[in-house]
Design a protein around this nucleic acid. Structure first.
Lengths: 212, 212
DNA sequence: GAGCTTCTTTAGCGATCGCTACGGTTGGGC
DNA sequence: GCCCAACCGTAGCGATCGCTAAAGAAGCTC
């Protein structure tokens, strides 16, 4: 045990009346990586403090408790890895681009595989129901964004008025969730891209009359 | 420590003095339900014994340890809820039937939602890596069965020789995994069936010449 | 320097984890 | 009847869980 775990930053315990001796952002990033890898329930405070290079009291002083730390890590994840189909272009391109982006991101070796929002509370005990609900709400949000994107295409005449927007959105959300699982199972980027291509071939044909 | 764990007849003497006082099959079914609901890591021995109506020593005498109990529960699950695309008919019908069956099974209110094999070790600590690997192997097996089914169609001329069987199998496996997640998120059977319909519209067109 | 503030560390709280030693109870064989 | 094997419940093992009180250490103002 080293007496001093050197904070890579030059900011020693000095500045104001004793500022924090560790890099809060860096510690949060380390916590995100742990939650991302192991999920909420199975990541222990001991694991977190080890990865963050701090002791439990510092963690609680800086982040509150485990739940709040996860919330901050989640917000960091959304900020840096959040993906929603960009509205503005047509829905087909937006969904295709999203799938292709996720195929790369889910298998990016510079961070844990898959998606925190999908995986981190897949199994959690009754005591962590709040986390589960929080992530489910984010998933619902993402699915609603896809549906809205699809409805935009229907309104613009790029998709038949008879298109089942909710089912199509649920379908592509399912594809994303399946890509997540397979990325966690070790499937590589190229295969996920071919998977995404297969999924895109389910896109409905445009209406006979054409657009506007 | 290897106590006589014989599920068969009595141990040493012929008649077997003092049989088990609880129903082993019923207890195993209760254990399966717990694992199914909460996953492997987050299901504790206390929860299990509570649900099974027995005390820890009875559990360990009858099933070994937590890992072996899960293995038996898993085998029961496979036996009673296992689903693979039935070879013999054409692959399209087989996959469609599988998706329709899963839409009903994943949302059947008589048991926990979703699929044990997909969900039960989604997040687990480093100590449960064995369970994770075990379930992943079963998932790979299922995906391979789909791919084999598809290749059968290619060989029979019902699908173009250029069909990417692995990608198509990975795609439908992803759809199944997504259906599992959404069932766990509360999506109902009807929506899952519409989702499955959307997925089936990605099935490749037969070759121009038609089959034999 | 003294005094204050704030961070960090050590050490440990009560609860729960997976698991088991032990003794009571039961129902055979003799 | 007695003996013994097998199962049951009580109680508790060491380890780990999330979390925190108390004390040590360092920079600020004075």
């Amino acid at each position: 045990m080293s007496s001093v775990n050197s904070p890579s930053k030059a900011a020693r315990r000095g500045g104001g009346p004793t500022r924090r001796a560790f890099d809060r952002d860096r510690a949060l990033a380390a916590a995100l990586r742990e939650f991302w890898t192991y999920g909420y329930d199975t990541t222990s405070i001991a694991t977190l403090t080890e990865a963050m290079g701090i002791k439990p009291p510092s963690l609680y002083a800086a982040f509150g408790d485990k739940r709040q730390l996860f919330e901050e890590a989640l917000q960091l994840y959304v900020r840096t890895h959040g993906t929603t189909p960009s509205r503005g272009t047509d829905a087909r391109s937006a969904v295709a681009a999203m799938l292709r982006h996720l195929a790369a991101d889910y298998t990016d070796p510079s961070h844990p595989p898959g998606c925190l929002i999908i995986s981190a509370a897949a199994n959690c005990g009754p005591g962590s129901q709040g986390v589960k609900d929080r992530l489910r709400a984010l998933r619902e949000e993402a699915k609603a964004a896809i549906a809205s994107c699809i409805r935009g295409d229907i309104d613009a005449g790029r998709l038949p008025a008879t298109t089942d927007a909710d089912a199509l959105a649920a379908f592509y959300a399912a594809v994303v969730q399946g890509m997540n699982q397979q990325a966690c199972d070790g499937v590589g980027r190229e295969m996920l891209e071919r998977l995404a291509d297969a999924a895109m071939s389910a896109w409905p044909a445009p209406p006979a009359g054409g657009a506007d």
